[in-house]
């Protein structure tokens, strides 16, 4: 028992980040499952992180309300953004969302109340581990059930063939937008939880590198189902902690794993969990996103 307690104390931060990263990975999974490559979720997390932290710090909002407001703010921003960028596809869509993320980062640097480059310090540490994992459970459940609903089938149809999907009566733009906004909401919730878990936030935490990292969680984990992104987040968050003694080489490990997975397990680590041949065939990965 004592050993377990020690383990938790030592790795509390890492365990928390596993949950937070898993939520972010699921947030980008929604658009990937629809066949769209977007890189705006780090920025949505940032918007909600700053929004909710400022609400608890400066406006005295209760924690849950601040979290909800932050996530809603991110979703509210994603709606007009999605409505404009979803006329683009492929790399163009990815770059447009990436540019949006950088605009957010620069905007945070420019607004004095955010503490600019120094970051926002002294955020009340309200987030408990169970908040993170209860949220993850709910989000993973919702995503998993949506996947097998009419909505999930419509998303899959859009991923497989957009034009044919439209011929079945699916309003393609609206479904893409729904996946994007729901993703922003989830990213926002995770961002708010993260801000109150970590005491301080900085604009760079929500930039390009972070957006790419979130994408890597989801793609390396695999996107046939919700377990892939969670697995990817677990691996890439736990690995650096496990490799602490080899800290200098850990980027190299991560890079090698990334290349190996893409080359040899193109549909992600989730492939390893699928034992039946048919199940393996039906997995969806980077291979299926244009």
């Amino acid at each position: 028992m004592d050993g377990l307690q020690q383990f938790f104390d030592a790795y509390q931060t890492t365990i928390g980040f596993i949950g937070l990263n898993a939520m972010l990975a699921l947030s980008v999974w929604l658009t990937l499952y629809t066949g769209q490559l977007t890189l705006g979720n780090a920025a949505f997390a940032g918007i909600a992180a700053y929004g909710s932290a400022l609400l608890t710090m400066k406006a005295g909002y209760p924690f849950p309300l601040a979290l909800a407001c932050g996530a809603l703010l991110a979703a509210a921003v994603s709606l007009p953004l999605g409505a404009t960028v979803f006329r683009l596809r492929g790399v163009y869509l990815a770059i447009a969302t990436l540019a949006f993320g950088e605009v957010v980062r620069v905007a945070i640097l420019a607004i004095p109340i955010t503490g600019r480059g120094q970051g926002l310090v002294g955020i009340p540490p309200k987030t408990e581990l169970w908040h993170i994992f209860a949220s993850l459970l709910v989000i993973a459940y919702v995503c998993a059930r949506l996947r097998i609903s009419t909505v999930g089938r419509a998303w899959a149809a859009i991923r497989e063939d957009e034009l044919a999907a439209a011929s079945q009566g699916i309003p393609v733009r609206r479904y893409k937008l729904a996946a994007f906004v729901l993703g922003a909401l989830i990213a926002g919730w995770a961002g708010g939880l993260g801000a109150h878990f970590d005491f301080a936030i900085q604009p760079d935490e929500f930039g390009f590198a972070r957006a790419v990292q979130i994408l890597v969680f989801a793609v390396v984990g695999g996107i046939p189902n919700v377990f892939g992104p969670i697995l990817g987040a677990l691996l890439f968050t736990a690995l650096p902690a496990v490799l602490q003694p080899l800290q200098e080489y850990r980027d190299i490990f991560q890079g090698v794993i990334l290349v190996l997975v893409i080359v040899y397990l193109p549909r992600g680590l989730a492939t390893l969990l699928e034992l039946r041949r048919t199940a393996r065939l039906r997995t969806v990965g980077a291979e299926d996103v244009a």
Binding site: L146, T150, E160, Q168, D288
Partner: peptide
């Protein structure tokens, strides 16, 4: 939809005839 099953293809085809079960599925 090549990556979906035969049955799923037909289900997607029923899109305009079936009510959204997004909430019910929860």
């Amino acid at each position: 939809f090549k990556g979906l099953t035969v049955l799923e293809n037909v289900l997607v085809g029923r899109y305009v005839r079936s009510r959204s079960d997004a909430l019910a599925s929860l």
